[in-house]
Design a protein around this nucleic acid. Structure first.
Lengths: 203, 203
DNA sequence: CGCATCCGATGACAAATGTCATCAACACCG
DNA sequence: CGGTGTTGATGACATTTGTCATCGGATGCG
């Protein structure tokens, strides 16, 4: 039986290297490529055609989910999975929608990760139970597309005038969207709304 | 020559385990204890009295710097160093003030980390050059103690009334502090000020 | 001592924000 | 076709926030 060919993508060299070393110790796993950014991960995947791509969620350039989306169309036979430290409910949903087959927090052990890689390679799926429960209890985003967009533009504390300009909307419209978004989220103002939406991965 | 006894503290099992395995491969390094939280790190340090404590900056319970502070008084012969993914200028300053002798981002390789551990154990110091440059260019916090405190309470987007209550101050006083903090930071409003102060590690 | 600085507060005013009602265009669905 | 929901806008209004001047007390420093 041939070993499972892996692509590791994580911007932290320390973790990526350590992980590569540990997973390489497993008889049936071999790390064929490493990447430190989203675009690099894509390039390496094209060049080495791994069986499974293990992607960090937060990377420079493009996050794990968008890399997974690209891989799905470019290399359909390559299974993808996400490993992350800060997992939010919304991220899990987007990941699953992108065809990701494994979603695990970095708090698992390397042994466990190796097992999950095998599961995913075998065509199975694995989602961390706790993250799954969070995602279910958090529900879907009640925000419309524009509400989310405007809320995102408000994320850095910019005044309404600036948001309106960047979104090419009138200030009144922006205030309406922010107001409705905040009330949907049960927040006292837009800044608290931004925090809530962020915490749930809705922006 | 006896091996350097290490304590590893990081809440992410995956990284901690991988790191322990990699560093353990070095002839002159031995991991004698691991911890997944601030308090646990302290307890393990007391029990195993390591030569060098390698601490993650962000951990549940107590962050790396406060653990380092406690270690400094409890186990003065134990050198401490911080390893982190999201390093902000202010964190470096606080770490150095706490007697930390090494400060490195997680983007370094394991080889490099092993070298730095040896340097620190030998009584030397090491600070990542890029982080050091950031810290110098960012300068010191211009905020007074209360300004920083009030700004911190404003971090979650709470209205002034709530901040005033939590800080036991009048609303007018809170607004004054927020206003002066924002103007010192060159921010348009308090929310942008919070972001700026956060980015520099001043809160 | 005099001076500067920080803390804490008040009052007043201008500006930004939140809220609501209302309107119109458009798309989608049963 | 009518109903529903989204988008985008306007106007009016109350509330919140930002800004400034000013005050008093405390603390620290040359």
């Amino acid at each position: 039986m041939k070993a499972v060919r892996l692509l590791l993508a994580d911007d932290e060299h320390l973790i990526r290297g350590a992980l590569a070393a540990l997973l390489g110790l497993e008889e049936d796993l071999v790390v064929v490529a490493e990447a430190a950014s989203g675009p690099e991960a894509l390039a390496m995947a094209r060049a080495h055609r791994p069986d499974v791509a293990v992607l960090d969620l937060q990377m420079p350039g493009a996050d794990g989910v968008s890399v997974a989306t690209s891989l799905r169309s470019e290399l359909p036979e390559c299974r993808t999975m996400i490993v992350t430290s800060h997992a939010r409910p919304g991220h899990l949903k987007r990941a699953l929608a992108a065809g990701v087959r494994g979603f695990v927090p970095k708090t698992v052990s390397a042994q466990r990760l190796a097992e999950i890689i095998r599961t995913v390679h075998g065509g199975g799926r694995y989602v961390d139970p706790e993250l799954a429960a969070d995602a279910i209890s958090a529900g879907d985003s009640p925000l419309t597309a524009r509400e989310a967009e405007v809320l995102d533009l408000a994320a850095d504390g910019a005044p309404v005038a600036e948001i309106a300009e960047r979104a090419s909307l009138s200030q009144g419209t922006v205030r309406n969207y922010l107001s409705s978004a905040a009330s949907k989220l049960g927040a006292e103002n837009r800044h608290a709304a931004v925090r809530l939406a962020r915490a749930r991965g809705w922006v």
